[in-house]
């Protein structure tokens, strides 16, 4: 049990970068606002069964135009550890067939700062690409996409070279759209192709690479 706790704790370390929550896939209407709470995380083996580690994020988005939505989020799990981690980005519609199909891109900046020690300011750019599809032209839709974090630093601890500058993830999801509320369900494959061994974490990947994660977002539009 203690070992499991140890492992769980380290999952928090890993997935500060992988806790990238479900993000906007479709732009909001101009002037429309939305608030979201995201819950979910990577899967680990717990007593032989896979369970997700719960991460939470609070987000807010605003439709700047009908094709561009700005958003910002606060990573509350990071905050528990005394780190102010935020995401600020924009979602751009690249192509849209009304209520049928669309492509979007979403560049963002992740920042983190240790507010306890007032040290360790870091910036990581991220990029999301998504394709969504409305089956039967209903408001709810399915989507697939890819996302990547970019590590800009050339060195890591002890001046050793930084091995990975691109940390790719892929995802697929379903957005259940109600009148004001939306429910977003997403599965991710985090750290695509990156070996997860050696490591202090026993999480569920594919052939000892990456980690699978499941996420849920509750979104309220205003």
């Amino acid at each position: 049990m203690r070992l499991i706790r140890f492992i769980c704790i380290f999952l928090f370390l890993i997935f500060i970068c992988f806790c990238s929550p479900t993000q906007l896939v479709k732009p909001l209407q101009k002037g429309q606002r939305a608030a979201a709470i995201t819950y979910g995380g990577p899967l680990i083996k717990f007593a032989g069964a896979p369970i997700p580690i719960p991460f939470t994020t609070l987000g807010f988005s605003y439709g700047l135009t009908s094709k561009i939505t700005g958003y910002a989020s606060l990573h509350t799990t990071s905050l528990i550890f005394g780190n102010l981690q935020t995401t600020v980005g924009g979602l751009f519609s690249l192509y849209e067939q009304e209520n049928k199909f669309g492509l979007t891109v979403s560049p963002a900046i992740q920042t983190a700062y240790n507010i306890r020690n007032k040290t360790g300011f870091r910036i990581w750019p991220t990029l999301d690409l998504n394709a969504y599809y409305h089956p039967l032209q209903k408001p709810s839709f399915v989507y697939i996409g890819a996302n990547s974090w970019f590590e800009l630093s050339s060195l890591r601890a002890h001046n050793e070279p930084q091995a990975n500058h691109i940390i790719p993830n892929i995802h697929a999801g379903y957005m259940l759209v109600k009148t004001k509320w939306q429910h977003q369900f997403e599965i991710k494959y985090l750290g695509l192709g990156i070996p997860n061994l050696p490591g202090v974490v026993d999480y569920i990947g594919i052939s000892h690479k990456g980690a699978l994660g499941i996420y849920y977002s509750l979104i309220r539009k205003f």
Binding site: C17, F81, N83, G120, R122, E151, N164, V200, V201
Partner: peptide, 13 residues
């Protein structure tokens, strides 16, 4: 950093 793949300071945690 091994765990996160990022150049993350230890004192975050």
């Amino acid at each position: 950093q091994d765990a996160s793949q990022l150049n993350m300071p230890a004192d975050y945690f």
